[in-house]
């Protein structure tokens, strides 16, 4: 009789892939908020997926998958930004003139939005960047609090300060 783990493995992997496919946008948004070129984003996305797969056996199905995914993805991205994990390729530092140089220009408005987004993200430390990304992804204060590990009231306070800070930062550059 084959072992239980050997029998469960394909089901587990299929379950993981189905959920990953359904929530792939989270991985892309996190990678887009912490890496500035398509190569760095690809590297980060692969690292996030590997970290998700590694953590998958400990996932509690009674908890929301998206919250779990945000936590693993953001922790992986922050560790990479802080140099706690190995980078595959040479990491490219943020440069407003070079950002997304490899991506074909589609329309001026879209490019301006992306430049503004990257300037905003780059001006923040990794934890506040996570806060902004979760807010821009329209997560509730409750979900943001759960991902970050702070209180809901603290989320509201921090968001107000963050908005003010961003307005000042982006106005001065």
């Amino acid at each position: 009789m084959p072992s239980t783990s050997a029998m469960d493995r394909p089901v587990t992997e299929a379950g993981f892939e189905a959920r990953l496919r359904a929530h792939a946008g989270i991985v892309r948004k996190v990678a887009g908020s912490y890496a500035w070129t398509s190569h760095d984003r690809d590297d980060l996305m692969q690292d996030i997926v590997a970290a998700l797969w590694q953590a998958w056996p400990r996932y509690d199905p009674t908890r929301p998958f998206s919250t779990w995914m945000y936590r693993v993805a953001l922790n992986t991205a922050i560790s990479q930004v802080r140099g706690e994990t190995r980078r595959r390729r040479h990491h490219v530092a943020y440069d407003a003139d070079l950002h997304d140089a490899e991506a074909p220009a589609r329309d001026l408005e879209e490019d301006e939005q992306l430049v503004l987004l990257q300037r905003a993200m780059h001006s923040l430390d990794p934890l506040n960047r996570a806060l902004l990304m979760l807010h821009l992804d329209e997560c509730s204060h409750r979900d943001i609090a759960e991902v970050l590990g702070i209180s809901e009231s603290n989320v509201g306070t921090k968001l107000n300060r963050l908005k003010e800070r961003l307005r000042n930062t982006l106005a001065s550059t």
């Binding site: 892939e17 990953l20 496919r21 792939a24 946008g25 991985v27 892309r28 948004k29 990678a31 887009g32 908020s33 398509s38 984003r41 690809d42 996305m45 692969q46 997926v49 991506a103 589609r106 879209e110 939005q113 992306l114 503004l116 987004l117 905003a120 902004l132 990304m133 821009l136 992804d137 329209e138």
Partner: peptide, 19 residues
């Protein structure tokens, strides 16, 4: 910024290989 994030995600969705 929200629109920027959505558009960036859509741009990345055309070229990734997450699976």
């Amino acid at each position: 910024l929200k629109t920027g994030l959505r558009r960036l995600e859509a741009r990345m969705a055309t070229q990734d290989s997450l699976l």
